[in-house]
Lab assay of single mutants.
Amino acid sequence: MEVRTIKVFTTVDNINLHTQVVDMSMTYGQQFGPTYLDGADVTKIKPHNSHEGKTFYVLPNDDTLRVEAFEYYHTTDPSFLGRYMSALNHTKKWKYPQVNGLTSIKWADNNCYLATALLTLQQIELKFNPPALQDAYYRARAGEAANFCALILAYCNKTVGELGDVRETMSYLFQHANLDSCKRVLNVVCKTCGQQQTTLKGVEAVMYMGTLSYEQFKKGVQIPCTCGKQATKYLVQQESPFVMMSAPPAQYELKHGTFTCASEYTGNYQCGHYKHITSKETLYCIDGALLTKSSEYKGPITDVFYKENSYTTTIK
């Protein structure tokens, strides 16, 4: 009895394709271990004539594949690729409408935090270190965002349907971005203890939790000093293409032309909904596939993004 075979390709990165001759009487799992086709788990399936010449994702289970996976995804987590594939199996079914010149995501599976993050990423200057993220990001900007969303979920250790947080998501993504040249110098002034300067680099240099107003941050924000008295913390120097200011959701007025974009969060910790506000020729609110415009805006804002380049204080 002759062994019926077909020729397929296996890959971990969709760049390096490895030619395989597979036995049609055995499952993919018996031949390769966990195997995925377009995100779908085909591990328990036997090869079919229609699979001839198709590319299958496999887990990096030998040295060659491990090197290829690390170079593309910059992670050695053995569960990463499987999590990416199972997320992709959902995100490829989502709709990605162009809204006001940006790629958004039609609401499904509690994905409003991903839509808000995706919209924000198209408006701030950011370059990702893992080629996987950078490639998928370019495709997302062009309207094909399924891979990018699935990668975000995998890097953030999230599953489809789980509630997510924009600030946490951005923080994970910033860790995989090139923020080497970003720098922030802060000064804390206390009447009792004097003053202390701190220099922050990388992710810490672009994120701040405690106030939404970048102007206020430049002037000074009140913080408790270690001595128990009130101290003032203010920005001395900022070198970065953008800054992200966050605070627990509270009524906040966004003035046209003073910011790049913002995240609105309605609801409580267990259950809520994100919308995205962007400042173009007027203010726009993007909620999944829905767009509304207004000249002014007041609502429960939790993150505001500002364009920056270089700032030095005039406070002496």
Rank of each mutant, 00 (worst) to 15 (best):
E2D: 14
R4I: 14
R4Y: 13
T5W: 11
T5C: 14
I6H: 07
I6D: 05
V8L: 10
D13M: 05
D13L: 04
N14S: 12
I15C: 10
L17K: 11
H18N: 09
H18I: 07
H18Q: 07
T19W: 13
Q20F: 08
V21W: 11
V22F: 06
V22W: 04
D23R: 12
D23F: 11
M24G: 11
S25K: 13
S25E: 13
S25Y: 09
M26F: 08
M26W: 12
T27S: 09
Y28T: 05
Y28A: 05
Y28P: 06
Q31F: 12
Q31P: 06
Q31K: 12
P34W: 08
P34Q: 11
Y36R: 05
D38R: 09
D41R: 07
D41Y: 07
V42R: 06
V42D: 05
K44F: 14
K44E: 15
I45S: 13
K46L: 14
P47N: 05
P47W: 03
P47I: 06
H48K: 15
N49K: 13
H51K: 05
H51G: 05
H51E: 11
G53S: 12
T55D: 03
T55P: 08
F56M: 11
Y57R: 05
N61Y: 14
D62G: 09
D63W: 06
E68C: 05
A69K: 02
A69N: 03
F70P: 04
E71Q: 10
Y72N: 08
Y73V: 03
Y73R: 03
T75Q: 09
D77Q: 07
D77G: 06
F80I: 04
F80M: 04
L81S: 05
L81Y: 08
G82R: 13
Y84R: 03
Y84I: 06
A87G: 07
L88K: 06
H90S: 12
H90C: 12
T91Q: 04
T91Y: 02
K93Q: 09
K93P: 05
K93H: 15
Y96L: 04
Y96M: 04
V99G: 07
V99L: 13
N100C: 13
L102C: 06
L102V: 07
T103D: 03
S104Q: 05
S104Y: 00
I105Q: 04
I105K: 04
W107V: 04
D109F: 04
N110Y: 00
C112G: 02
C112Q: 06
L114I: 11
L114M: 08
T116F: 04
L118C: 02
L121M: 09
L121Y: 03
E125C: 06
L126S: 03
L126G: 03
K127T: 13
K127S: 13
F128T: 03
F128V: 02
F128P: 05
N129T: 09
N129M: 07
P130A: 11
Q134L: 06
A136Y: 09
Y137D: 04
R139T: 11
R139H: 12
A140L: 13
A140G: 04
R141P: 04
G143V: 02
G143M: 04
G143Y: 02
A145C: 09
A146G: 07
F148L: 12
C149M: 11
A150F: 02
A150E: 01
A150S: 04
L151F: 03
A154V: 06
A154P: 03
A154M: 03
Y155S: 02
C156D: 00
C156F: 02
K158F: 03
T159R: 14
T159S: 15
T159H: 15
T159M: 12
G161P: 03
G161N: 09
G161C: 05
L163E: 12
G164C: 04
G164Y: 01
R167M: 00
T169L: 08
M170L: 11
M170R: 02
M170N: 04
M170V: 06
M170E: 00
Y172C: 09
H176R: 11
N178Y: 06
N178A: 10
N178Q: 10
S181T: 12
S181H: 15
S181K: 12
C182W: 07
K183Q: 15
V185Y: 03
V185H: 03
V188N: 05
V189M: 10
C190V: 02
C190T: 00
K191Q: 14
K191R: 10
K191A: 15
K191V: 15
T192G: 12
C193Q: 03
C193R: 02
C193P: 04
G194C: 04
Q195R: 10
Q195I: 13
Q195T: 15
L200N: 07
K201S: 13
K201E: 09
K201P: 03
K201H: 13
G202M: 02
A205G: 01
V206F: 02
V206Q: 02
M207I: 08
M207E: 05
M209P: 02
M209A: 15
L212H: 05
L212C: 08
S213K: 03
Y214H: 03
E215L: 05
E215V: 05
Q216C: 09
Q216N: 10
Q216W: 03
K219M: 11
K219F: 06
G220Y: 00
G220T: 03
V221C: 08
V221A: 04
V221H: 09
V221Y: 08
Q222T: 12
Q222G: 08
I223M: 09
C227H: 02
C227N: 01
G228N: 03
G228L: 02
K229E: 14
Q230H: 08
A231N: 01
A231P: 00
T232V: 14
K233T: 11
Y234I: 11
L235V: 11
L235R: 01
Q237K: 15
Q237T: 13
Q238M: 00
E239T: 11
S240M: 00
S240C: 05
P241A: 11
P241T: 09
F242N: 00
M245D: 01
S246L: 03
P248V: 07
P249A: 02
A250Q: 15
A250C: 11
Q251M: 14
Y252E: 06
E253C: 07
E253M: 09
K255C: 11
T258R: 09
F259W: 01
C261R: 00
S263K: 00
S263Y: 00
T266E: 10
T266F: 08
Y269A: 15
Q270D: 15
C271R: 15
G272I: 00
G272T: 01
G272Y: 01
H273N: 00
Y274E: 00
K275W: 00
K275R: 15
H276Y: 07
H276K: 01
H276S: 05
I277T: 02
I277N: 00
I277Y: 02
S279C: 09
K280S: 13
T282R: 10
L283R: 00
L283C: 09
Y284F: 11
I286R: 02
I286V: 10
I286G: 02
G288I: 00
A289F: 06
A289I: 10
L291K: 10
K293I: 09
S294C: 11
S295Q: 15
S295I: 10
S295E: 14
E296A: 15
E296G: 10
Y297I: 07
G299N: 04
P300V: 15
P300D: 11
P300W: 12
P300I: 15
T302V: 09
T302D: 00
T302A: 13
D303T: 03
D303R: 00
V304L: 04
V304T: 01
F305D: 07
F305R: 00
Y306W: 01
Y306D: 00
Y306Q: 03
K307A: 13
K307P: 14
E308N: 11
E308Q: 07
T312F: 12
T313E: 12
T313S: 14
